[in-house]
Design a protein around this nucleic acid. Structure first.
Length: 259
DNA sequence: CTGGGGACGGGGCCC
DNA sequence: AGGGCCCCGTCCCCA
């Protein structure tokens, strides 16, 4: 691959923050091609039609997710244009979201976090989660011995440390990866396997994220709007690209992206 | 310059 | 604690 060294995308990667994991973007029925069980490990069946998981449903709604709230008009500071074309077809919750929703419903007999209200099956999982609420200044914060990045929790640090150990090597091209599923995904580029099919047009993808992005291109509505020129884009990445283009060159770039 | 797709890293959650 | 899985987001390339 000619990819450059990974960069610190998505802002401050040194902060293994207690960022609530949003459960958006599920494209369940679109992303799960026949014969591919996205919940293989958990053994959950595909989600049945359930109004509780319908987009826009309160329980499902995630303020950070463009997909999850269909009444929302603004995404993360970027203006989102009104969509008369329902995104329902594309942004139905996925298995994970569903699990979470179920968990929330079962909250009564689960272990819930006093700080954020998330619930867990075991006290052990809860205590692990609680670590994510620590501050980076906390004495309990851990530092990566390799690169010095600081993490608020052991699990986060453990995960990060793995990124320095590229022990999963591609036998075809020799590229190495820190985690087995990264190698798996990479192997598809050699085998041509594309297990993620678009239910809308049939196009297949090797990577689920790419299918997700592709699904957005089916939407006639462009949810991300440039604050400078009002131009709208279907994907946030297009908008970001736009910000880097002439529209913001040397001007209020940071202002536009920042909020 | 925009749209679209390929590839992949980081980190959270579950078991 | 570790492994597996998944999602989010980003970068790069090309039409």
């Amino acid at each position: 691959m000619s990819r450059p060294a990974p960069m610190s995308h998505g802002g401050d990667t040194t902060r293994a923050a207690p960022e609530p994991r949003s459960a958006p973007g599920g494209l369940w029925h679109c992303l799960a091609p026949a014969g591919y069980d996205t919940d293989k490990k958990q053994g959950l069946p595909p989600p049945p039609p359930d109004p509780a998981y319908a987009p826009g449903h309160e329980e499902y709604s995630d303020p950070e997710s463009p997909q999850s709230s269909f009444s929302a008009r603004y995404f993360n500071g970027e203006a989102a244009v009104t969509d008369s074309y329902s995104m329902d077809a594309f942004f139905i919750t996925d298995g994970r979201s569903r699990r979470r929703s179920e968990s929330q419903r079962r909250g009564s007999h689960r272990h819930s976090c006093p700080e954020c209200g998330k619930t867990y099956a075991t006290s052990s999982n809860l205590s692990r989660h609680k670590q994510t609420h620590r501050s980076l200044d906390s004495k309990m914060a851990k530092k990566c011995p390799t690169c010095g990045k600081v993490y608020v929790s052991m699990p986060a640090l453990a995960m990060h440390v793995l990124t320095h150990d590229l022990k999963h090597k591609c036998e075809v091209c020799g590229k190495a990866f820190s985690r087995p599923w990264l190698l798996q995904g990479h192997m598809r580029s050699h085998t041509g396997e594309k297990p993620f099919g678009c239910a809308h047009c049939g196009k297949a993808f090797a990577d689920r994220s790419n299918l997700r992005a592709h699904m957005q291109t089916h939407s006639a509505f462009k949810h991300f709007k440039c604050k400078q020129c009002e131009k709208t884009f279907a994907l946030k990445s297009y908008l970001n690209k736009h910000y880097e283009s002439a529209c913001f060159k040397g001007s209020e770039h940071s202002c536009a992206i920042g909020n």
